[in-house]
């Protein structure tokens, strides 16, 4: 994982730790959209994404007064916190799903499915949500969060080769799911 030697957030975090209102506003403006997007892409639920983003910031506020530069870049640390909060929620969902199997979904074409097919954004969101969790995490961290392969692999606790494999499989599945958009 990238170390904090050239952490672009270092000075801001120090000011946040001292309760500087301008620094707090600046940090929220800089990081909140990224955290919200990360959680939204992984959980596919706006309300849960807001909860995760808020909780990640609460932990950042606790950490800021004693933040030690050098251990990890703040952005990477915040991603780790948000990612772990998402993992917790995904795990709970799986437990609930196992305890209460979902009803069978009617595979017949619905009347509004043609509308959905024309909306690329909704199609992409649905295709992402249908990916296995680890493939979706890899795509979200590398494509949407624009993390390096080294940082993304470290966050996911896998090797860079394993990350590359997850990305390739995830993107292949996405391309297949969205193939008709290019026809």
């Amino acid at each position: 994982m990238t170390t904090g030697g050239s952490d672009p957030d270092q000075e801001l975090i120090a000011r946040v730790g001292r309760g500087d209102p301008a620094a707090i506003q600046a940090l929220v403006a800089r990081k909140l959209p990224r955290m919200l997007q990360l959680a939204h892409r992984l959980l596919n639920d706006a309300a849960e994404a807001e909860d995760v983003a808020q909780e990640a910031f609460l932990r950042a506020w606790k950490q800021a007064p004693t933040w030690q530069p050098g251990a990890a870049r703040f952005d990477t640390w915040l991603h780790r916190v948000a990612l772990n909060l998402c993992y917790d929620r995904l795990r709970r969902r799986r437990e609930v799903a196992m305890a209460e199997p979902p009803e069978q979904v009617d595979p017949a074409p619905a009347a509004d499915r043609g509308l959905l097919a024309r909306d690329t954004g909704l199609r992409v969101t649905a295709a992402l949500a249908a990916l296995p969790d680890r493939q979706r995490e890899a795509v979200v961290l590398c494509h949407y969060q624009e993390l390096t392969n080294i940082d993304a692999a470290a966050l996911m606790g896998v090797t860079v080769d394993a990350l590359e494999s997850l990305l390739a499989r995830g993107r292949r599945a996405l391309r297949a799911a969205l193939a008709d958009l290019r026809e």
């Binding site: 309760g19 909140l32 808020q54 494509h143």
Partner: peptide
């Protein structure tokens, strides 16, 4: 082509209420 498709997915923007809740919980000077 796939990058462009992925970028077409909507982004969730933080609302004013969420932003304010987070700021209100920040360390005080």
């Amino acid at each position: 082509d796939l990058d462009e498709d992925l970028d077409a997915a909507g982004r969730l923007s933080p609302g004013v209420a969420l932003r304010q809740r987070i700021i209100d919980a920040a360390p005080k000077a």
